[in-house]
Amino acid sequence: MIFTKEGSLIIVSQEEISIERFLQNLENEYAKLKNDNLVVDLLGFSKLTPYNVISFLEISRKHKKNEQSFVLVSDKVSYDDVPEEINLVPTLQEARDLIEMEEIERDLGL
């Protein structure tokens, strides 16, 4: 796994691996990441389905309970095809922007 720290967030990416293995690796490393906002970069996966994205739902819920942001990045799946509680955006910049907005909301107590 590749971890890139940018201020208050960590971008997690992986090359040359199945989406199932990537999710398993993320769950194994989660204890080290639970206190940071997470951006999970899925742009490197050429074949991605809504089901693949939905498989991140449980870890997303766990992370949000810890009052941290969790955002998936993929341009292969539309956010209309996944549950509303999954943050899915098509670019890394939109992920950064979404986390910034969520941090402001948390600071304001919204």
Rank of each mutant, 00 (worst) to 15 (best):
G44N: 09
E85P: 01
E103F: 04
L110E: 01
E94P: 10
Q93G: 10
A31Q: 12
D97A: 11
F22R: 07
S74F: 01
L48G: 02
K64S: 07
Q68T: 06
P90L: 04
L23I: 10
D75I: 01
E29T: 14
S46G: 03
E94N: 13
L26K: 07
N87Q: 05
D80Y: 14
V53S: 04
L88W: 03
D75K: 12
A95D: 01
Y30W: 13
A31P: 05
F45P: 08
R21W: 12
R106W: 06
G44V: 00
G109Y: 08
I99T: 03
L38H: 00
K64V: 05
L98K: 15
K62Y: 11
I54T: 13
K62W: 14
L72Q: 00
L110W: 11
D81F: 09
R96D: 03
L108R: 08
K76F: 07
V89M: 02
I104M: 11
I54F: 07
E105H: 11
S78F: 08
L42C: 11
V77S: 06
P50R: 06
M101W: 12
T91C: 11
F22K: 09
A95N: 12
K62T: 12
S74L: 00
K34Q: 15
N87P: 01
F56Y: 05
L108F: 09
V89R: 10
F45S: 05
I86V: 07
D107R: 15
I59F: 10
E94L: 15
L92F: 11
R61F: 06
K34Y: 13
T49V: 04
K32A: 11
D97E: 11
F22Q: 06
E27V: 13
P50I: 08
M101F: 13
R21H: 15
F56A: 00
N35K: 12
K47W: 05
Q24A: 09
N37G: 08
Y79Q: 08
K64L: 09
Y30C: 12
V77A: 06
E100K: 15
N35M: 08
S46R: 15
P90W: 06
F56L: 04
S55V: 08
D107V: 14
S46V: 07
V39Y: 01
A31R: 15
Y51D: 09
D81K: 14
N66P: 10
L38K: 01
D107I: 14
K32G: 08
V82I: 12
V40G: 02
I59S: 04
I104F: 14
N25P: 06
P90V: 05
S46A: 13
R106D: 03
E85H: 09
M101S: 13
L92N: 10
I99Q: 02
L23Q: 10
I86N: 04
Q68F: 03
D97W: 05
E102Q: 12
S60H: 07
Q24Y: 13
D36E: 06
E105T: 03
P50A: 02
